[in-house]
Design a protein around this nucleic acid. Structure first.
Lengths: 104, 104
DNA sequence: ACGTTATATGATAATATATTCATATATACA
DNA sequence: TGTATATATGAATATATTATCATATAACGT
């Protein structure tokens, strides 16, 4: 028999809550928003992202790992260079809805 | 003449970045998600929210202030009781899209 | 004015997060 | 094998966030 934690019908189950909050947390940081927005239309190497957005290489790499763990980005290797691109159309769509909304 | 900080056409302006990240930050916490999700369909008093979600009164009040500052919720007074309800249909829509997405 | 109830606020402590620096790894090529 | 380049990683620090506790405020009824 398994624990039934969820008792209130108007509340969300823990798993959903975790996934949703993690996803929005990913979108809740300016640096990650800038990276995702950049990756909207084409792939970029780590260094290109750092240059385009004026960020440190390490910062970009750390944030890409974060986004990769959530499967929001993916990459492909070419020699020593890794080309990152967006991986979740649905979440990218949410992001752009919010950006459009923010711009009025 | 004013400072032109934004030089890269693929990057977002600071104002948009701030609004978007703040909004997603609001949705990036389990407690706030539960509150917003509860307020989806009807209004609740602070104490009712606390009871329904098994949270402290102070916690709920603090989070409601956060959400109110972002105009994601509004309230109406009746005697000593404040009834809170959701105030931004667009953002509530984003939230429910993400919840549906998370539930597969 | 006083007590009661509902909510807000301020301070604190615990935890999480983001960036930076230094260094490690991995691939390519001479 | 040695060097160069691209990226990843770990540690440390600074900052932000969250929940809790105690207390304040605000409205109401007596």
């Amino acid at each position: 028999m398994r624990e039934e934690v969820q008792t209130n019908p108007h509340d969300l189950d823990e798993e959903t809550l975790f996934v949703v909050s993690q996803t929005f947390k990913a979108l809740g940081d300016p640096t990650r928003i800038r990276i995702l927005n950049l990756l909207c239309c084409k792939e970029y190497s780590v260094n290109d992202i750092a240059e385009e957005l004026n960020l440190g290489q390490s910062t970009v790499s750390h944030q890409l790992r974060f986004l990769k763990n959530l499967r929001l980005v993916k990459f492909r290797r070419e020699g020593t260079t890794l080309y990152y691109s967006s991986a979740d159309d649905h979440i990218m769509n949410l992001l752009h809805q919010a950006i459009d909304h923010a711009k009025h």
